[in-house]
């Protein structure tokens, strides 16, 4: 369903994604792992047609994103990393707008919006302005937008970011459930999520794949039975030069840059 073929993206002289190739079949949930800046979001933005690739191609249901972007985009449901929304709209207004853009109308649109609201547990806030929602609700509203047209391919950039443990659990269950009938590519920093929801996982570092396999295979590859160890061994640490021993980059990536500067000041 998703075929990525030597996809490359350069920003000026910097290569963000370097000849990446992989595929996701129907019924597969592919976890996309890697440190911050490894090129995960850039890859997803290329597959969804937001960034044109420097070279290479991605095919969604056999349709090339480079040659026929609009047709390919119809097949994809996409949750961007920051879960962007039109803040001045209500949840239901926003979903209706997205459904119209997706070409749904009349009863189809009504049903699509209702079922997306139900799937993402948004009933209680459906008529509320997005401006007034908490982060978890906003995130789920954006996720609902990705599910509206019942796409064959789902691309989710950190779908559990900013959610509380209950919501994380629900979203993982949802991904698992949807994964039975769709091809799903989702990125995450949370390594347990790989075991909880993925049928296969890729670890990327500096734009290239460094590991590929089922969660069980990756665990075996680590030697110690811990994905965290594997992740730390395979990927480049952006803090490695200063402090080779002490860092915990996996759980809270936003905290990273703050810590060294705080340490310097004190």
């Amino acid at each position: 369903m998703i075929e990525v073929d030597s996809l490359t993206k350069q920003f000026g002289s910097k290569t963000a994604v370097d000849k990446l190739s992989f595929s996701v079949k129907k019924g597969e949930v592919l976890g996309f792992l890697g440190p911050n800046g490894a090129g995960k979001s850039t890859t997803m933005r290329m597959i969804t047609g937001f960034f044109p690739p420097t070279s290479g191609d991605a095919k969604v249901c056999g349709i090339s994103v480079v040659d026929r972007p609009t047709a390919a985009k119809r097949k994809i449901g996409y949750l961007p990393e920051s879960a962007p929304l039109y803040r001045d709209m209500t949840v239901i207004g926003f979903l209706r707008f997205c459904a119209s853009i997706r070409g749904l109308s009349g009863a189809f649109k009504q049903n699509a919006v209702e079922s997306a609201i139900e799937t993402c547990f948004l009933e209680s806030v459906a008529h509320q302005s997005i401006d007034t929602l908490s982060k978890g609700y906003r995130h789920r509203t954006c996720l609902a937008q990705a599910l509206l047209h019942d796409p064959e391919v789902l691309i989710l950039d950190e779908p559990t970011d900013g959610l509380d443990p209950n919501q994380k659990f629900e979203v993982r269950q949802l991904i698992k459930r949807l994964g039975k009938t769709k091809a799903i590519l989702f990125s995450t920093h949370i390594l347990e999520e790989v075991e909880a929801a993925c049928t296969r996982a890729l670890i990327v570092d500096r734009g290239a794949i460094v590991a590929d396999g089922t969660p069980a295979e990756l665990l075996a590859l680590s030697g110690t039975g811990s994905l965290t160890d594997l992740f730390r061994n395979l990927t480049t640490r952006d803090t490695a030069v200063k402090e080779p021993e002490e860092e915990e980059p996996e759980e809270e990536p936003e905290e990273e840059p703050k810590e060294p500067s705080a340490a310097k000041k004190s």
Binding site: T48, G49, I76, P84, R87
Partner: peptide, 14 residues
């Protein structure tokens, strides 16, 4: 600023 450009850019519209 809100990043909704990314939504628009991935919707099937020119």
């Amino acid at each position: 600023r809100n990043g909704t450009l990314e939504l628009l850019g991935t919707f099937p519209l020119s």
